[in-house]
């Protein structure tokens, strides 16, 4: 892997938290590199520190040791170059869909007209045309997550960090959201770090899967995925990969 091609990298990240029950080591010397426009999936059991790793990449949490490098520069705080899609959507309930999507642009003082033009483009892209003036509480879970994805995209980040974005959705909605995310990503390529605990979702979406162990979280194995997308859940190669990863995952648990 040529280093010039690396968009964002974690170098030897460790993080622990002190609670009433003592100190818990959450991440232990985690290193990974994500190439430009690569769709990297971080797969791990519940409570393996993968959300913490994502928050470190986002700059929301400072690591105890190690560093995050974006475009060759050290990350010290969150920034508009890294968009985050949160598991719990994190939409602003007092803003309409349009104003939620335009939030990042408003923060940068972009004029309203321009702001809304860009917002509209991404509202259309995620299939929410007609809901511009709805408030988040009027939307279903899947629609909320679409707004959140559009909000991140509209801000034109270099890296999209997605923290189990579909885990709160029912199975049917989840499948269709995975499909749509893939088609959005094909239309507007970004470097993506996608966190999940779902093996199928990981194989369906990823260019490469990084498997994490349970606490303290470390990287156990990597699986490159080369078959063309969109992939079929029932293909022999898909099922083979699923079996291979599941065996390793069980050991991780």
């Amino acid at each position: 892997m040529s280093t010039s091609n690396v968009k964002i990298a974690a170098k030897g990240i460790s993080k622990s938290f002190t609670t009433e029950n003592g100190t818990i080591q959450v991440l232990d010397n985690v290193s990974l590199e994500v190439k430009t426009n690569e769709f990297l999936v971080i797969l791990g059991p519940g409570q393996c520190g993968k959300t913490i790793l994502l928050n470190c990449l986002a700059g929301i949490l400072p690591p105890d040791s190690g560093e995050v490098i974006l475009n060759g520069k050290k990350v010290t705080e969150p920034g508009p170059d890294r968009g985050v899609v949160f598991q719990q959507y994190a939409l602003f309930p007092w803003k309409t869909v349009r104003d939620n999507v335009a939030f990042g642009l408003a923060i940068r003082h972009m004029p309203v007209k321009e702001r809304y033009e860009i917002a509209q483009k991404y509202i259309d892209l995620v299939g929410l045309t007609g809901f511009e003036k709805s408030y988040p509480h009027q939307l279903s879970g899947g629609m909320k997550q679409r707004v959140s994805i559009a909000r991140s995209y509209a801000n034109n980040p270099e890296v999209l960090l997605m923290d189990e974005p579909f885990s709160a959705l029912d199975a049917q909605t989840r499948y269709s959201m995975e499909k749509e995310l893939l088609s959005i990503w094909e239309q507007e390529k970004r470097t993506v770090v996608f966190i999940t605990n779902n093996v199928e979702e990981a194989i369906y979406l990823g260019d490469r899967i990084v498997l994490m162990t349970k606490l303290p979280g470390t990287i156990k194995m990597e699986f490159p995925l080369t078959s063309p997308k969109p992939r079929n859940y029932t293909d022999a190669s898909f099922l083979e990969m699923r079996l291979a990863i599941s065996e390793e995952t069980e050991l991780a648990l």
Partner: peptide, 14 residues
């Protein structure tokens, strides 16, 4: 105030 919302705003550079 939900801290997640503050975090979200921070990721947009607020």
């Amino acid at each position: 105030t939900d801290h997640l919302l503050i975090d979200a705003a921070r990721t947009f550079g607020a």
